[in-house]
């Protein structure tokens, strides 16, 4: 008799919980977004604080500098490439702003140079981004590279970013690019 009563009590709780879970689950699914999100940097909000280089869970940050070529002026004197106190505008290491020498400079035609990023070397410190934004067109900027990013549930860089530049963007449109690519994609 007592045993029967116990079973019904637990059985009742079981049914009640099933209903509750069904209700919560139903509401949740109705309210949830069908699109997954990934992390990305809004280049307009980024203040180049250099935290992206050190705060990523990956030993080599998934944040890299990218180059919007059609925004670039192809200058010989590049604020993103050379240090402000560079004695010569050459490729000598002491004249380069990038601490890892990740920016490749290629001569195109007089007086223009193309600058490209070697992602294997880039650590995402944004020193070049700062230089380019201060003296140039702002064609160098940081982006989360999705071939590297492990898309953590909560991004550790996002939590320390002082300017809220880390945002969740739809996985279908995972970049916030500058220049003509930014408008099209």
């Amino acid at each position: 008799m007592a045993k029967d009563k116990k079973i019904t009590r637990r059985g009742f709780l079981h049914s009640a919980t099933t209903l509750a879970i069904g209700a919560i689950g139903g509401t949740m699914i109705a309210k949830s977004s069908k699109d997954n999100t990934v992390w990305q940097i809004d280049p307009d909000k980024c203040t180049q604080c250099e935290k992206c280089a050190t705060e990523c869970v990956l030993p080599l940050s998934a944040v890299k500098c990218v180059h919007a070529y059609d925004v670039c002026g192809y200058c010989e004197l590049c604020g993103g490439y050379s240090t402000s106190d560079a004695t010569k505008l050459d490729t000598a290491a002491e004249n380069q702003l990038c601490p890892t020498g990740a920016i490749k400079r290629t001569f195109i035609e007089d007086p223009y140079y193309e600058y490209s990023i070697d992602e294997e070397k880039c650590i995402g410190c944004a020193k070049c981004v700062k230089g380019c934004g201060a003296f140039g067109n702002g064609s160098l900027y940081l982006q989360v590279r999705h071939d590297r990013c492990v898309n953590c549930n909560e991004c550790l860089i996002a939590k320390v970013c002082p300017s809220d530049a880390f945002v969740r963007v739809p996985a279908k449109k995972p970049y916030l690019l500058r220049g003509d690519q930014g408008q099209n994609t």
Partner: peptide, 21 residues
């Protein structure tokens, strides 16, 4: 500040790669 130059050689401007997740 520095408008994109008009290249005389047939330089092709590369595209920024955007590897998808």
């Amino acid at each position: 500040r520095f408008p994109k130059p008009e290249f005389e050689t047939d330089y092709q401007q590369p595209k920024t790669t955007a590897p998808l997740p």
